[in-house]
């Protein structure tokens, strides 16, 4: 087990270094970045305000040139970046929040993302696990068919469109019909709620707990339904597999009641995959949900990533991808370790 873990950690570290180097090189090779526009302006117009010196000075500030103004070669820059990155210094943002530390920027968005992702994860688990188990125990029942249909809809549903439809229904149509309507997005209200809205009805002050919770409802609903579709299906097939296994047949043959067979013998093993679900949710909890956060203008990490990408803010993009990669690797290792505890049948060598 220890040798296996050491080997895995060394492998993962190598993979992380290679892939981050590849992305770093690609990002630096693209025409673009914060001053490509300046450069074009400077080249075309002799009287332009921006001179070659200005650009070089800016590049120096951003760490693309050394003190003497000579360009630093790519591999040296990567090593510099990596040695700072592992100490938590991700450089400064180029565009989204110009001049701000990337680590500060990420931290400021983290609370919103964790709030959204954990609430969606918890709601989904509470619903998906019993639903999946129940529909496996009652295979081919009406409930099973309903759940299967729901799963199909969940898999086929484009999340962002589902989000848009909920906004149209609960924010716009509800307002039209004179029902207490939901906010269209954002994490908190910026001004006092308007009469007729749900927030007004609840007397929620901007920034209060109620205000935050009401804003959380629609985005976490979208995410929960998405996760529920996948996870309930997963739990169902896990339980079905256990129910078909020999030891369940043995338990039945011993004359145990169906209740004892399912609750004491089958359920415990069928629940093992929850470990996988939760552990592989870790990268998501910190990385956020790119599409849902964008649709609901939820100022989280996922939204930050999309903004950084569309404005060529490469330090933010690099930080996001590197942290996600580390979390994914960590989740994989954690899953392997936890499995040896919950399922003694698994051994690594």
């Amino acid at each position: 087990m220890t040798t296996y873990l050491i080997r895995r950690i060394i492998q993962s570290t190598l993979v992380l270094i290679i892939s981050s180097a590849a992305i770093y090189a690609l990002l630096n090779a693209v025409p673009g970045g914060p001053f490509s526009g300046l450069r074009i302006a400077g080249a075309g117009d002799k009287k332009s305000q921006v001179t070659q010196q200005d650009i070089e000075r800016m590049e120096q500030m951003l760490g693309l040139r050394d003190e003497n103004g000579n360009p630093i070669p790519l591999h040296v820059r990567y090593i510099n970046w990596l040695s700072k990155a592992i100490r938590g210094d991700w450089g400064k943002s180029w565009a989204v929040a110009q001049g701000q530390d990337v680590s500060f920027l990420l931290k400021s968005r983290l609370t919103n993302t964790i709030l959204l992702m954990t609430s969606a994860t918890i709601i989904s688990l509470i619903v998906a696990i019993p639903a999946g188990i129940y529909s496996a125990v009652h295979q081919y029942s009406k409930f099973d068919y309903i759940l299967t249909t729901f799963t199909f809809f969940g898999i086929a549903m484009p999340v962002f469109w589902f989000g848009l439809m909920l906004i149209i229904l609960f924010a716009f149509k509800f307002q039209e019909w004179g029902l207490p309507y939901f906010p269209t997005g954002d994490v908190i209200s910026l001004r006092a709620p308007r009469p007729g809205s749900l927030l007004y009805l609840l007397g929620a002050e901007p920034g209060s707990l109620t205000d935050r919770l009401v804003h959380l409802i629609l985005p976490s609903l979208v995410l929960s339904l998405l996760y529920m579709a996948g996870w309930s299906r997963y739990m169902r097939s896990s339980m079905l597999e256990v129910l078909r296994s020999d030891y369940v047949r043995t338990a039945r043959a011993k004359g145990l009641s169906e209740r004892v067979v399912i609750l004491k013998h089958a359920l415990r093993n069928a629940l093992i995959p929850i470990v996988t679900i939760i552990v592989f949710q870790i990268p998501g909890i910190f990385g956020g949900a790119v599409l849902t956060e964008t649709v609901f203008n939820w100022k989280g990490i996922g939204r930050l990533y999309v903004d950084a990408l569309s404005r060529s803010d490469w330090p933010v993009v690099m930080a996001y991808l590197f942290i996600s990669a580390i979390l994914v690797v960590f989740a994989n290792l954690l899953a392997d370790i936890l499995y040896t505890f919950v399922d003694p049948r698994i051994r690594y060598s």
Binding site: V290, V306, A325
Partner: peptide, 12 residues
């Protein structure tokens, strides 16, 4: 992470 990677590659 599929979507972030697809996004960054398409952006590049």
């Amino acid at each position: 992470p599929t979507l972030p990677i697809l996004l960054v590659v398409s952006a590049i």
